[in-house]
């Protein structure tokens, strides 16, 4: 019976949402077959095994080692490739997160197979694995077929939302391959931003500020709008990250993050092609720009051609009021 193996990503001792998404995707692929999850971290990480069982893992392989306190791509790839072999995995599912995208190609290369990356959906088609993958900055959708066994895939964050489907989640200790503390690639520092904040890849709503905000401190108005939604993250254009108003990690676009939230609100964003590349697949797009001719209006479902400093605070109040009622 084919087993599906899922990498349950954790950072700084905490399970990430994409871990549950990977296990959920694996569960959907497995049908009645077994889902095995791999959970890796320093001592104590095994406490998260239950959550993986809740989302459909029959077995959770837990590897606790001081060498896994921070991201350790070499030891992790070795561990996942070995686990793929020992469990006879038909598919290895990883999140297309920063760490997932770092590790997945190493795992694929160790297994000498191709990889289907950043999939928005995945399924068996006969004996092959088939997934959808936005290419050419999201302007083209590719359907990718993987014939190798195992197949290695990474799932775009948010594509398969976590779904509870309780399974045994039987914990099995997994020994590292070699000494994780002896890896050549060493993550010396991890600097977390505000962990209470939603990540761009996870937030159902994104409010992005562009150069139209004119100064870093004016991001307060987009922060307040995001706050009013309660489930929003704040993004930025390259004009803004270039000027150092926001960190590079907030940049959305061709050379930044690729996002597809339910709602994307662009404030003072012109809508350059490279920016659209990162957000064109959002479900609903709202633009607020004082220039009626700004290209962002071509892609926006709803636009307000007005001054952000006037419109955004009003919108914030209206969103608060709407949410208070519902």
């Amino acid at each position: 019976m084919p087993t599906i193996l899922a990498f349950a990503e954790a950072r700084a001792g905490q399970l990430r949402k994409v871990a549950l998404e990977a296990v959920t995707a694996a569960r959907q692929l497995a049908g009645g077959d077994q889902v095995h999850a791999v959970l890796v971290g320093e001592g104590g990480i095994g406490a998260h095994a239950a959550a993986l069982g809740q989302h459909g893992a029959d077995v959770v392989h837990v590897c606790e080692h001081a060498g896994f306190a921070r991201h350790n791509p070499e030891a992790l790839a070795a561990l996942l490739a070995a686990a793929a072999n020992t469990t006879g995995a038909r598919v290895v599912v990883l999140p297309a997160s920063a760490h997932g995208k770092d590790v997945a190609p190493r795992v694929a290369a160790k297994l000498k197979v191709g990889l289907a990356a950043d999939l928005t959906s995945v399924a068996f088609e006969g004996d092959a694995i088939v997934g959808r993958h936005p290419v050419n900055t999201g302007k083209v959708l590719a359907t990718v077929t993987l014939t190798a066994k195992p197949a290695v895939v990474t799932m775009r964050p948010g594509a398969v939302p976590p779904a509870a489907q309780p399974k045994a989640g039987t914990v099995q200790a997994l020994a590292p391959v070699g000494d994780p503390s002896a890896s050549r690639v060493v993550t010396t520092t991890l600097v977390q931003g505000n962990t209470a904040k939603l990540d761009l890849g996870e937030a159902p709503v994104i409010v992005t500020g562009g150069r139209g905000l004119k100064a870093a401190e004016h991001f307060a108005i987009v922060e307040a709008l995001a706050e009013a939604f309660g489930n929003a993250a704040v993004g930025a254009t390259r004009a803004v990250t270039d000027d150092g108003w926001r960190p590079h990690s907030d940049q959305i676009g061709q050379t930044g993050r690729l996002v597809s939230p339910d709602l994307y609100i662009a404030v003072g964003v012109s809508g350059a092609i490279q920016h659209l590349a990162g957000m064109r697949n959002s479900k609903t797009i709202v633009a607020i720009n004082k220039d009626k001719e700004a290209p962002i209006f071509k892609i926006a479902d709803y636009g307000i051609a007005g001054d952000a400093f006037e419109v955004v605070p009003k919108l914030t109040e209206a969103v608060k009021a709407a949410r208070a009622q519902s």
Partner: peptide, 25 residues
């Protein structure tokens, strides 16, 4: 060896034309 191939390429559905709802708050 090639084990990953493109079975199909297509253009994503066009976004329906949006509308400008107004010019101020």
């Amino acid at each position: 060896p090639v084990t990953a191939t493109v079975a199909k390429m297509e253009l994503p559905p066009e976004r329906a034309a949006g509308r400008i709802l107004g010019e101020n708050a």
